[in-house]
Each structure stands twice: as structure tokens, then as C-alpha cells.
Design a protein around this nucleic acid. Structure first.
Lengths: 346, 346
DNA sequence: GCATCAAGCGACAGAACCTGTCGCTTGTGG
DNA sequence: CCACAAGCGACAGGTTCTGTCGCTTGATGC
């Protein structure tokens, strides 16, 4: 097999992506490490030749560096079912995540689009008429996170160095420059937050990425996390992240037939059981509302705030029977709500 | 520039992904279309050479075909911020989508992982301690969709041909073979559904992919959609998909301070306004509950079922003031619920 | 069972291409 | 102003590629 070809393959794998770059001498050294005995001159020639057909380019001045100008997407096409899945996932994510996060997948998605365009005969938009996404949540508008913010913060986090950003908190709407020591990135409700210590303080705090502006990497200043810091543990103890209350509940619900069907497909837990209760309880709202026989659902679930939101969202479609403490919680809420709504609107 | 090299680049772009394949003569013909005047023999030699270093292989017997054995991921590495974003998105999707849909992105994710591994110094798991995802929804277990089901259904849909599957409906738990004419793929609540006509009937129906088994592509039988069929329109008129009721609402809410802050970041609509109402209303549950001053939120939103779920999920944290019709709806629900929960548990 | 044909593959000589080397130019730093 | 490294054109010798030919193999039709 030709030496030239092998070297080309190895070389392509060594060239970094813009904005990084590698000098010819550098590449030469690393190729020698791979066992290629070749002159520097040839590598220069290789790069010039390859750049004629692939998105490679020289970047910068005298100690010139080479880099990929765009992410090389590879030669093998995507398979059609993956391509369709990508498009579905992309549409699913669109209302849930800030554009910057979703757009990290842009090159892959474009690849998917190309495959679908080719496959479904030329007409560009034909396949897009074949898929639809129905959101199951209220579509809230995600705030925008600036590209550079996401980039600098990620880089600082991975490199373990500090960064400086303009931050406008909820209290102080005017942006203030702050030096942050990144400890972790948390996605909560579709929004990215940075857990970091500010300046030289020791206590971690939470910073929303969409409140940051004009980021700068301080690549000379290493981060030293507070001793014993653990992101998962930290997240679980922060009220701001609706942390689990800890512990599990043996849940017993009466639900409408519609919801029972839904739960049959999307189970609450692995041990979930759905049964038709022997006696009809006269006072079950689910039955009154939909004129259906209520079903009994049992499941063991984590005791979280999310669970309460989920239960409340069905309104009369679900009635909590057990545990009694949770039932009392909801009973109190509904009593208060009935009173609120019982009053006049004005 | 060397003719050989150019031909290699073009050739690599023509080879399909397994299970598809292309014969040498086929590739020869298409390369000639690109303007390469080359003998078939050389292309054979090229393929053998290339396959020594790239995941190419011959597949099958006498009229042998060549294909990529795996998706070639390209030479340019992913940039770090994209890689981190990919990992975040992947963790975000994990509890929301069936594995099969999310795993369409597996090759890309592996790529991301490789970049992160390299970047954050050797220790493999270091970077994964840097990110966390807090779900904002109750984590329901997604049912499994078989790989082959997703593949065959996508392919049938894109190729516009029928397929045959085993289908067990909610009513008939025993799988029955059914011939389907795919019209569209709908992602609802994270689960994929196929809109299709069965056998030779004209009316579209909805089939859940996780209820399908042993799919088979009927590639000789083209699909003729019912005249005037439009997926988006169909989805919007199906009760099963919680379609919008049509029309918009001028919403006015009283919300807790916490929720007001949340809505400031994740707006209901572009025209949303948050104000502190001039007079304190004594009967606002939000205020009673959290001992905070309630805020007034105004926004124009679509009149959907999702909106009601969303409003209900906050319980006492939100009070609907306008429109009056919606307020009455909720008032009736809460009255019924208060009554239900007022009774005894047994 | 035999003829026919396309596909696959080894071999070879001539053509095309690659490669080490040299020398010149250019920009940088002392 | 000199020293030095990087960049690049040119060239001859060596390597690799390429069209061609002929043989083998398995499929197809009669």
C-alpha cells in the first residue's frame, strides 16, 4: 500500500479545527512519531494538495498554522432512519433549549438534511411534510445564550481555568464584570447555568449563561475547586434546582381511563401496577368529569417537586390516595384554590 | 494536483453506507460522470487500498458491492464547546425520548466524548463530573421502540412505499399483521407515532411505533395518500394529539414572585408583560401561600390543552384572572377537586 | 452438461507522480 | 546589519500508478 496514502490519512487526523492550528514542523514531528520517515517539504506539499479538495486552510502569519476551516463531515453518508430521527429530535428540541445549545448539532443536522433531500427525490421540502412534532409542554420562549458565552465558558470549564464575564443578576440589571472559577455546567429546565466561585470567594454560586456577556478566557489562572466539592451533590442540595426531597413514596392514585392508558405506555416506575378497583368510589372526580370508570395506579417514585407539578397538571384527571401526607398537601392546596377562585374576578 | 488523489476523494463520497452497497462498475460509471477517465481495474485497486485504512469493505457475493461498514466520522475533530453541548443535550434527552430515537445520535456523541476525553487530560471520567442535568418534568419511563421498527418505518415513509408490521392495539393485546401505507411520523410527548392508512382503507389512523413488531418493507407497493391529505392539518384535528383548540387568549395571571422571576427568563410570549399590581388583592392564593406579593403577568398565547396543564401544575402559585371563560373552567375544576379531597381517604 | 459471459484478479511495462535536496527569498529578532 | 528559521520553486531519480492482457471462477441459459 502506498506510503503517500497512509501518510495522508494520518495527517488529516492530526490537523486541528479552527481556531486551533498546527504548524508544519509540528505535524512533521507527530507524523514521525507515527513511524513516517518523511521530509518536512513533503508535508507542506501534502497540505497544499489536500486543501485543494478538503476544507483545510492555512491560518495566520509567519509561523503559519494549518487547520480545518469547518468540521469535516466524513465521507460515509448518514443512514436514512438516523437522518429522520435527527430531524425529529431537532424539532423536538427547538422549543425546549436555547438556540445556541441546539445549534451545536447544526453540522450533523445539515448532513441529515442532505441525506433526506437526496433520498426523497429532489423536491427539497417533501420529506419535511412527513414529520411533525407535537409538544407536550407549554412552549415557553427560551432566552438566547450568546455563542461566545457558551464557547468561552465551556472552554474554561474543560481547561480548568478562570474566565471573566459581564453579569447582570436579577437584582442588579446593570452588567458587572466578574471573575469566575467554573466548577460545573448544569442544564435546568432547558437552560444552562454555570456553578462557579466568584473572585476569590470559596462558596459556589449559580450563574445563568443567558445573563452573561462579553466573556474572556483567563488562561493563565487555574481553578482550584473548594475541597470536597462535588457537582451532583451540590445540585441536589440547591433549592434553586428543585432538588429531590430525598426518599421515595409508595404512590397510589385514582386516574381517568385516558390517563391510565397514557401511563401504560409511559410508566411512572418499573414496578407500576394499573388495576381496576373493585368498588366504585362515588366521590372520585375523575369519574365524574369524564364519565369513565377510574383506574387505580400504584408505583414507587422519588419524592420530588416535579412529582407534585406532574400530579397537579392533570387537575381532576387524577386523585392521590396514598401516601396520606401527600394527599393532605394537595387537599390543602385545592381548598385554598377553590376559595381563591370562589371570590370575584375584579 | 494528482489525478489519483482527486479520484480517491470523489470515490469515497460515492460509496454508500451498509446495508446499501455499490458495485465496482456502478462506481466506475458515476466517477466517469464526474469527469474521471479511468479504467475499472484501477477503481478495484483503489477500493482495496482505501479499505486497508478506512472502514470500507466488500459486502456480498458475485456482483460484489462496496460499502462503509460504519459511519465515517470525518477527520476534523469536533470543537470543545460543541462537544460539551452534545453531552448536555444527550443527557437532557435521555429521560424524554425512547432510546432508539436518541441513539440515532450515538456516532456523533461518541465523537464528542473522544474530544472531551482528549481535552480534559487523560482521566476518562473527569469531564463528566463537570456537567449535570436537572429534569424539570416528572421522569416517566419511555417505552422501547425496536431498532428495526424505526428503520423500516422511516424507510417506507421516505421511499413512499408500504410496509407490514405486527401491531398490538390497546384493545387487542395480541399482535396482528397489518399492511400500512405511511403518511407521516409524529413525535408526541416524546413518543413516535405513525400516521398511516391500513390495508386499502382511506381513513388515516394513528399507530404507536412501540406497539409494532417484526416490520417488513413492501418495496413494490407505492403509497397513494388520500387526496388533500396534509400531515400538519391532520395532526391539528386529532384529539389524540391534544391539538390546539384554535384561536389565542389574552391571558392575565396573578403569579408568585418565584414564578414571575421564572417567566422573566422563560417568557410565555413575545408580548409578555410583568407588572406589580397597584392594589394588593387579599384573596390571592399565591400571596397567602408564599407570603410574597403577587405579580401580574399578561401575555397572548395559543388556546391549547398544554396551556391548561401548565397553569394547573403550579397549583396555588398562579391564579388566572382573564379570560373569564378560562377562569370559570379552572374554578369549576378546583371546586370539584376540593370536594373530592374533602371526603375521606378510605 | 456444456457454452457463454461477466466479474475478479495477477502480472507487466510505460507513464505519471512523488520525494529529497538545493538554493533563493522573506520576515523576525538581536 | 547579521543570523536564522520559514516558505517555496525547481529538478532528477525513484516509487507508484495505470491500461492492458490473459487466466480463473461462478452464474446463466439452452
Amino acid at each position: 500500500m502506498s506510503e503517500t496514502f497512509l501518510r495522508h490519512i494520518d495527517l488529516l487526523g492530526l490537523v486541528p479545527l479552527r481556531p486551533r492550528k498546527a504548524s508544519v514542523r509540528d505535524l512533521h514531528r507527530r507524523l514521525q512519531g507515527y513511524g513516517h520517515t518523511i521530509d518536512v517539504r513533503s508535508i507542506e506539499r501534502d497540505l497544499i494538495k489536500l486543501s485543494g479538495r478538503l476544507p483545510l486552510a492555512r491560518d495566520g502569519g509567519k509561523p503559519a498554522g494549518w487547520c480545518w476551516t469547518e468540521r469535516h463531515r466524513g465521507f460515509a453518508p448518514m443512514d436514512p432512519s438516523s437522518a429522520l430521527a435527527h430531524q425529529l429530535v431537532a424539532r423536538f428540541l427547538e422549543p425546549l433549549l436555547p438556540r445556541r445549545l441546539a445549534s451545536a448539532m447544526a453540522p450533523t443536522l445539515e448532513d441529515a438534511r442532505a441525506v433526506l433531500d437526496e433520498l426523497s427525490g429532489r423536491p427539497l421540502a417533501r420529506w419535511s411534510k412527513l414529520i411533525a412534532v407535537v409538544p407536550q409542554q407549554q412552549a415557553l420562549l427560551p432566552p438566547t445564550v450568546a455563542n461566545e458565552v457558551m464557547e468561552v465558558v465551556s472552554e474554561a470549564l474543560l481547561a480548568g481555568c478562570r474566565c471573566e464575564v459581564g453579569y447582570r443578576s436579577a437584582q442588579a440589571p446593570r452588567a458587572r464584570r466578574t471573575v469566575l472559577s467554573p466548577l460545573g455546567l448544569v442544564l435546568h429546565g432547558g437552560l444552562p447555568y454555570l456553578v462557579a466561585t466568584a473572585w476569590d470567594y470559596d462558596d459556589p454560586r449559580i450563574f445563568a449563561l443567558h445573563r452573561m456577556s462579553r466573556p474572556r478566557l483567563l488562561d493563565k489562572q487555574p481553578v482550584t475547586p473548594p475541597p470536597g466539592f462535588d457537582l451532583d451533590r451540590y445540585v441536589n442540595t440547591q433549592r434553586q434546582f428543585d432538588q429531590p426531597r430525598g426518599g421515595v413514596l409508595r404512590l397510589e392514585l385514582r386516574v381517568s381511563e385516558w390517563l391510565a392508558n397514557h401511563l401504560d405506555e409511559r410508566r411512572l416506575s418499573a414496578d407500576q401496577q394499573i388495576t381496576r378497583p373493585p368498588h366504585r368510589a362515588a366521590n372520585v372526580a375523575a369519574a365524574d368529569e369524564h364519565n369513565e370508570r377510574p383506574m387505580r395506579v400504584r408505583a414507587t417514585v422519588a419524592d420530588t417537586e416535579q412529582l407534585r407539578w406532574w400530579l397537579r397538571s392533570f387537575g381532576p384527571g387524577v386523585e392521590v390516595r396514598r401516601p396520606v401526607a401527600l394527599r393532605r398537601e394537595l387537599a390543602a392546596e385545592y381548598a385554598a384554590l377553590a376559595k381563591t377562585y370562589g371570590g370575584r374576578t375584579g
